[in-house]
Design a binder for these strands. Structure first.
Length: 649
RNA sequence: GCCGAUGUAGCUCAGUUGGCAGAGCAGCUGAUUCGUAAUUAGCAGGUCGUCAGUUCGACUCUGACCAUCGGCUCCA
């Protein structure tokens, strides 16, 4: 049993929720899937942070004053205006919506009956260059609401009119003008269009007016802009690099996984090499959990509909659950989460305070009917495996548990080569806290959020507050990792749940001999295995560290006579657990080496007449060419050490 | 789900203003037994995403559907 934490603040909440079942309210349970089955990460893949290789540059960039950051915003905002001006010149019938700067560039939303084509994008970019060359002064003009209303009414700028309505009475209304173009805008902007020299239009996309699904679909043009031409080039290079590392591309090239139309969208099929990778990671993950006091459990892929009604999933997530199946008057539903099953495990016996904390772990495969448009390789699928854990503990144990989960994740990520982590405390968005977005009492929320933050404070590590990211029933601690390209990915989530234990009537016998309701923590370390593998593949560009490479060594006999000796070596290595094969093909050595390199095999051993006579192997490391001859014992020790230390390079 | 684009051999991609379907790589067969990123010759390989429609004739035109890609929305 773990030591008692210092969390007293939570005790009242614990008491509040004891026996306070609220049948009228459909309460949810864990929200573990929030981000780790998400689409592209919320990555800040900008010049702020580029890569480990650019650590020095990074420091310099982080030193950049706020002023400079803002002026980059200013530059991009002006670029958006130039984009709109160019579009207006080429297509006068277009109606303008909004055009802000973003973390990585800018966009402008347009309303036009005909769709823009990629060719249009080229024309628009050319027109933008002209506007830059014209070096038009950008001026700000303050006008009254009436003037603005009249102006936008005559120009039939319906979107601007809508924006205008939203401006509170008494606020300044400003118009920015450059040449014949004028836009309702708060600014600030550059002084002249000529200052926006380094920009590029990147893509076309649809976007809802004001981000609302029920609103008009507009056409969005994305672009980016920088002060320095080199920075623009670097950014475009990073985009290219990301494309090259796309896990969907690498997964196909290396034969890890496929999606099959006949099987269904969003349902990954693991090919032998990918399945090997997956099962190795799963085995390691399981071992680590067991070492940390988690007990592995297993549960079925479906359960009776009433189970999902009790847990609340049925009421809250029906549209993302696969539909019910009926047979002999019973209705089953495929699981979108594992929690109710772990609750069953808890309920399988009488629990005492002496048993707490109880930690259950399962590599549980869950199914969620994601909308067709959001599916994205392994990052957003309809069937995936969570390294899902549930901890049942007392209020006093919460802090200790949160700490050990965090530590567990940090150590696990280190093994996979991720050391650049960020901790987020997901709390409510205060501005919307009254809008019925969150359940429960505001005071309770304040209390529990405060407690969460102070627990993280006591961890003595840097963290950030993520407003609006709290689950509707409680706050969470999330851990994001930064990959080799500087992108952030959320993997670990730690959530507190004080609903499910009550709903399922969970209790433990306390020191006082009375029944108490335990707290339940939902957590996942790597998150979704599918998603984590995607992150690994992108981070390493497919060059997986030796210890998780499905094929670690490939032996290349120079001619057929060397095959028996090669097989001998292969067997010896396999016996000590080094995954080795022999390329017995009839191609020449060079072709086999090329094949091995393309397949990103960590080590290639060349065996010819010389090696056979000297009882050695010629070692070739991935991307490092020839390392020279070594005895089998030498290389074996080297490999085993590299595997043991989980070296990544 | 919404907007837009795309879908041709295992893979990467040409192509046809409607008239017998093309390459490279991979595969197979043979020759070659080679020293650190592609030896060579030959042979195969396709309901041109699916289903309808127009047409003497559809891979090409039309429609619906499916899937993928870029976004939007969503992601418990």
């Amino acid at each position: 049993m773990l030591g008692v934490g210092s969390s007293n603040l939570l005790a009242p909440i614990f008491l509040l929720h004891r026996g306070v079942a609220q049948p009228g309210r459909a309460l949810g349970s864990g929200s573990r899937g929030r981000k780790f089955n998400s689409s592209l990460p919320d990555y800040i893949f900008s010049l702020k942070v580029t890569s480990k290789l650019h650590a020095k540059k990074l420091e310099r960039r982080l030193d950049m004053s706020n002023e400079n950051e803002k002026s980059l915003e200013k530059l991009r905002h002006s670029a958006a205006h130039i984009l709109a001006q160019a579009v207006k010149r080429l297509y006068p019938e277009v109606k303008l919506a909004i055009g802000p700067s973003t973390d990585t560039g800018f966009y402008y939303d347009f309303d036009r009956e005909i769709s823009f084509t990629p060719e249009d994008l080229g024309l628009i970019q050319e027109e933008m260059k002209k506007i830059v060359k014209e070096n038009l002064p950008i001026t700000c003009k303050e006008i009254t609401k009436e003037e603005a209303l009249t102006s936008f009414t005559t120009s039939k700028d319906i979107y601007k009119l809508e924006l205008l309505e939203a401006i509170p009475e008494g606020d300044k209304i400003t118009i920015f003008e450059q040449g014949e173009f004028a836009d309702l805008c708060k600014g600030p902007h550059m002084e002249k269009t000529g200052q926006v020299r380094n920009f590029k239009l990147l893509k076309l996309a649809g976007a809802y007016w004001r981000g609302k699904e029920t609103n008009q679909m507009l056409q969005r043009i994305y672009g980016t802009a920088f002060f320095d031409k080199k920075e623009l080039k670097e950014y475009l290079r990073l985009l290219e690099e990301a494309k090259k590392r796309d896990h969907r591309k690498i997964g196909k090239e290396l034969g890890y996984f496929i999606f099959d139309e006949q099987v269904g969208a969003g349902l990954p099929i693991w090919l032998p090499k990918g399945a090997k990778l997956l099962s190795m990671i799963e085995a390691y993950d399981t071992k680590k959990h067991e070492e940390s006091g988690y007990k592995e459990v297993r549960s079925p892929h479906l359960g009776l509909v009433d189970l999902w009604k009790t847990s609340g999933h049925y009421y809250h997530y029906l549209d993302t659950m696969f539909p019910p199946m009926e047979r002999d008057n019973q209705t089953f539903m495929v699981k979108p989460m594992n929690c109710p099953f772990h609750v069953s495990v808890y309920k399988a016996g009488l629990r005492s305070y002496r048993d707490l904390p109880i930690r259950y772990f399962e590599l549980g495969k869950v199914y969620r009917y994601e909308k067709s448009g959001v599916l994205h390789g392994l990052l957003r699928v309809r069937s995936f495996t969570q390294d899902d854990a549930h901890i049942f503990c007392s209020a006093e144990q919460l802090e200790q548990e949160l700490n050990s989960i965090r530590e567990f994740s940090v150590n696990l990520f280190k093994d996979f080569g991720f050391t650049d982590l960020e901790i987020y405390v997901s709390i409510r968005d205060k501005e919307h806290s009254d809008a019925g977005k969150y359940i429960g009492d505001t005071k309770e929320w304040d209390l529990i959020e405060k407690e969460f933050i102070s627990i993280v404070e006591r961890m003595g590590i840097p963290y950030q507050i993520d407003p609006g990211e709290a689950k509707f029933y409680g706050p969470a601690i999330d851990i994001k990792l930064r990959d080799a390209l500087g992108r952030l990915w959320q993997c670990t989530t730690i959530q507190i749940d004080f609903n499910l234990p009550t709903k399922f009537g969970l209790t433990y016998i306390g020191e006082d001999g009375e029944a108490h309701v335990p707290f339940m923590l939902h957590t996942a370390a790597l998150g979704s295995m599918e998603r984590f593998i995607a992150i690994l593949l992108e981070n390493y560009a497919g060059n997986l560290p030796l210890w998780i490479s499905p094929e670690q060594v490939r032996i290349i006999p120079i001619c057929d006579e060397n095959i028996p000796y090669s097989k001998e070596i292969c067997n010896t290595l396999n016996e000590v657990g080094i995954r080795t094969s022999v390329d017995e093909g009839s191609e020449r050595m060079n072709a086999k080496i090329r094949k091995g390199e393309i397949e990103k095999i960590p080590y290639l051993f060349i065996i010819g007449k010389n090696e056979q006579e000297e009882e050695k192997v010629s070692v070739r490391k991935r991307h490092r060419k020839n390392l020279g001859s070594m005895t089998l014992d030498e290389i074996k020790l080297r490999l085993l050490e590299e595997i043991e230390k989980k070296v990544n390079d």
